[in-house]
């Protein structure tokens, strides 16, 4: 591959790249020739600085080798796709093991440093050449560092997004407690996005389960701003359009106040104090006969 690929890629600044192209080739050759020694030096510094502690020495050495080779290839070809893919793949493997962003940044900067020192000791006798060498090396090395760090951060963000999604789904389960009756216990902080998701989930649940009554229990909701309160009202109305009745339970005085403030007629909303009462009301609507056993209050029998 070598110089051909390197020159093919250089389009934006011909004079600079003509010079730096030749230099880059020399630089890449240098880094290839000293591969074993520089790689070991780097791995040693990773251990010394206590980076990548979640990984064993062998693992660090294996990854260091891969990164080293990818690094040089990126320098040589000035294409970063392979490196990017590798960085993403590496991140995917090491993030679950607890490797932190500062460790990845740390090792990439170390490699940059190890290579720079080696270049310096090789060329420092000819100061002008040495300067030009660094002119060629630095932008590429920066971009490599950038690519790897960015790949790591993006992968982390993707994982976080996925986890948030999972948590969101877990925290808004639509439960079918008996035929045609759904319960939606809302817990925690409801933001507009979650509220919206919850509504969609509930409406689909109503259709899929042919529900006639829904109990939305908001006992576990800490606070509700006007936007989310509005959403709750819309959810009640939309459920009705599908033919289901909504009973809201666990309405705190604060949330009731918010609803009144945004102009909700609480009289039109079917509210019951507790979840238990809400379920009983739902069963009554569904035509079940609820009988309280005097001996054990709270248990019920179907007639």
């Amino acid at each position: 591959m070598g110089g051909k690929a390197a020159q093919g890629r250089m389009t934006n600044n011909e004079t600079f790249y003509e010079v730096s192209g030749t230099l880059l080739r020399e630089l890449v050759d240098h880094l290839r020739q000293n591969r074993s020694q520089l790689r070991e030096e780097w791995a040693r510094r990773i251990s010394a600085d206590k980076l990548l502690t979640a990984m064993s020495e062998e693992e660090i050495f294996a990854e260091a080798t891969s990164i080293y080779d990818n690094y040089i290839e990126a320098l040589e070809t000035q294409t970063f796709e392979t490196l990017q893919a590798y960085a993403r793949n590496l991140s995917e493997r090491i993030i679950p093991r607890g490797v932190e962003t500062h460790e990845i940044l740390g090792i990439v900067l170390q490699l940059r440093d190890v290579l720079a020192r080696s270049l310096f000791s090789q060329y420092h006798v000819d100061v002008e050449k040495c300067n030009r060498m660094f002119d060629a090396y630095e932008p590429a090395a920066n971009r490599v560092a950038n690519t790897v760090a960015l790949g790591f951060v993006e992968e982390r963000e993707r994982i976080i997004r996925e986890q948030q999604e999972a948590i969101r789904e877990l925290s808004t389960p639509v439960l079918q407690v008996r035929e045609r009756l759904l319960i939606l216990p809302m817990i925690g902080v409801i933001d507009p996005q979650r509220a919206r998701q919850l509504t969609e989930q509930l409406l689909r649940g109503i259709r899929a389960n042919r529900a006639k009554v829904v109990v939305i229990d908001i006992t576990g909701v800490a606070a509700m701003d006007a936007t989310v309160a509005n959403h709750l009202v819309q959810t009640v109305e939309a459920s009705r359009l599908l033919g289901a009745t909504v009973i809201v339970t666990g309405l705190s005085p604060e949330i009731a106040q918010t609803l009144v403030n945004i102009g909700v007629d609480l009289g039109k909303m079917n509210t019951v104090a507790g979840l238990q009462g809400g379920i009983e009301e739902a069963e009554r609507l569904l035509g079940y006969n609820v009988v309280h056993s005097l001996a054990a209050a709270g248990t019920e029998l179907e007639a």
């Binding site: 509504t199 969609e200 409406l203 689909r204 109503i206 259709r207 042919r210 006639k212 819309q234 109305e237 939309a238 459920s239 009705r240 359009l241 599908l242 033919g243 289901a244």
Partner: peptide, 25 residues
């Protein structure tokens, strides 16, 4: 037979069919 997405968009627009009976199917 009002579909879930249709119902949701209706209430967002402010259309609630308040005094009309509705059923699932």
């Amino acid at each position: 037979g009002i579909q879930p997405d249709v119902a949701f968009s209706m209430v967002q627009l402010g259309l609630t069919l308040e005094d009309v009976a509705t059923a699932l199917d």
